[in-house]
């Protein structure tokens, strides 16, 4: 097909990457806004969810927030935020209102997977381990920091991974409301009937998405206190709690998938 050849030519053309509004500058924009939003959502969502999980309260809210997040179209929320009179200046550009609207929408959509997974992660720590911690005379805070948190890390990370995928997808959609990012190259391509440009943008966005997912998967494996391939990592930490840990890993697998 001719379109594929044109797309390939567009991708190979260096000026499409380096020019103002080309791939590189758009990628930097999108990565910046995505990771800022993810960082903000983690800073707000994780402590609350972990704390609720530690107390064992608010489960209904923590679980159902994901369902609510799913039902609200990202596009609709972005559109609403852009059309509001606040925040930001009236300037309809990448760093004006559309940029801020994108940041807020991204943060909001990153929260549900973070909160649900972090809450479930702490709740999934087996009762025997909690009781053992109590029996050893650990205070609530000690139990949280030294038992529950390390054991729930893999599942928390899988929440971060889901949130990252969600944030990247949403920040692409932001282009539909003139927000920053590579999505702009796609929407511009479609608006001007240069489909090769749209396709090229789509290829770049998809490739970055897959790379981010892979990196997140690697990170998830790194924080796992019970590495699936047992060889090689931190043998002395492994000895201390070796018996019950596999259970947690199993539980994490069934929920975090």
């Amino acid at each position: 097909m001719n379109l594929f050849a044109e797309t390939w030519r567009y991708l190979l053309d260096g000026s499409n990457w380096t020019e103002n509004g080309g791939f590189l500058s758009r990628l930097v924009e999108q990565l910046l806004v995505s990771f800022t939003a993810l960082g903000l959502a983690m800073a707000i969502g994780l402590p609350i969810a972990l704390w609720l999980g530690h107390l064992g309260r608010g489960g209904f809210l923590a679980i159902n927030i994901s369902n609510v997040g799913r039902a609200v179209p990202t596009f609709a929320l972005l559109a609403l935020l852009v059309t509001l009179d606040w925040p930001g200046s009236g300037y309809f550009g990448p760093y004006g209102r559309a940029g801020l609207a994108t940041l807020i929408a991204l943060g909001l959509f990153a929260l549900p997977p973070l909160i649900t997974n972090a809450y479930v992660a702490v709740r999934e720590v087996p009762l025997e381990i909690r009781q053992a911690a109590d029996g050893m005379g650990m205070s609530g805070a000690q139990k949280f920091w030294r038992v529950e948190l390390p054991l729930s890390m893999p599942l928390v990370m899988s929440g971060v991974r889901l949130a990252l995928v969600q944030v990247w997808a949403t920040s692409t959609i932001a282009a539909l409301v003139a927000g920053p990012g590579v999505g702009r190259i796609i929407t511009e391509g479609f608006a001007t009937n240069t489909y090769s440009q749209g396709m090229a943008g789509a290829v770049v966005v998809a490739a970055v998405a897959l790379v981010l997912e892979l990196l997140a998967a690697v990170a998830q494996r790194l924080v796992d206190p019970v590495p699936r391939a047992r060889a090689g990592s931190s043998p002395n930490r492994e000895e201390q709690l070796s018996e019950p840990r596999p259970k947690v890993a199993e539980a994490a697998d069934t929920v975090g998938r």
Partner: peptide, 18 residues
């Protein structure tokens, strides 16, 4: 299918257009 799911919707649609 997981790999497919990570591709943002705004990128998947253009890839189907041809």
């Amino acid at each position: 299918s997981t790999g497919l799911y990570t591709v943002p919707s705004l990128a998947l649609l253009p890839l189907l257009v041809p």
